[in-house]
Design a protein around this nucleic acid. Structure first.
Lengths: 116, 116
DNA sequence: AGAGTATGACGTAAATTTACGTCATAATAT
DNA sequence: ATATTATGACGTAAATTTACGTCATACTCT
């Protein structure tokens, strides 16, 4: 968030922004999609799937974990990563509500005050 | 995107990431919500609504405009900003599809391979 | 024309992000 | 025990983001 002035925004705005930030990189979007396709909890094969260095992928994984969108548990030699579907569902609702509100008011346009 | 290796990801992943990035800051979330509430296309009053300097808000506005989520047209002395509801609706579908896919596969959990 | 106001462009400093390489650690296989 | 393999931690360089201040420009009002 860099220079964050977070205190001034509502919790909803911050939560939405936090999740959006987590999805703000194609690699992380790809990771989630990959995880969704896996039936078993594959670990670092994720790195093999992406055009990025393993350490970089690991870093993205940590970021997603920080927002709790994914969970990871050590299973012997490999780490089992999986989606936090409960949170994902909850986040989906937040996004839906946000977009609904945004698209609801047809303020501008040919019928509005200006001609955007 | 910083060191972007965009070429390696699908257009969908990049588009999703681009929009997510645009929403990755509470100020921008707030701006969109504010715009949604306005019936008329208010301009820089937005700055007054947020705890940020006018120039900073202007910068966020430019970023949102760069992704085309909002439109802005000069109307005399003020600039008329409004939401691109068409794109917003389209983006909403993308997010919905993404989340649906992500929450669909109940890979892990008590019944899965690992105990995340 | 001249004052006043709204904006975007430009420049800048500090903090973050991104992408990697290198290590240390831990577990499996030999 | 010793190699092999998988991971996360740590450090780092380059690019971006964020938040502002200061200007130049453009338009309205007198």
């Amino acid at each position: 968030m860099t220079h964050a002035k977070t205190a001034a925004f509502t919790a909803e705005q911050q939560q939405l922004a936090r999740v959006a930030k987590a999805l703000a990189h194609p690699a992380r979007v790809a990771i989630i999609q990959f995880l969704a396709r896996q039936t078993t909890c594959i670990s670092g094969d994720i790195a093999a799937e992406l055009p990025l260095a393993r350490t970089t992928v690991s870093q993205h994984l940590q970021e997603l974990k920080a927002v709790d969108l994914i969970r990871g548990e050590i299973d012997g030699l490999t780490v089992c990563y999986c989606l936090n579907t409960a949170l994902l569902r909850q986040v989906q609702q937040q996004f839906t509500a946000f977009f609904d509100a945004a698209t609801a008011g047809a303020a501008c346009g040919p019928d509005g005050a200006c001609a955007c």
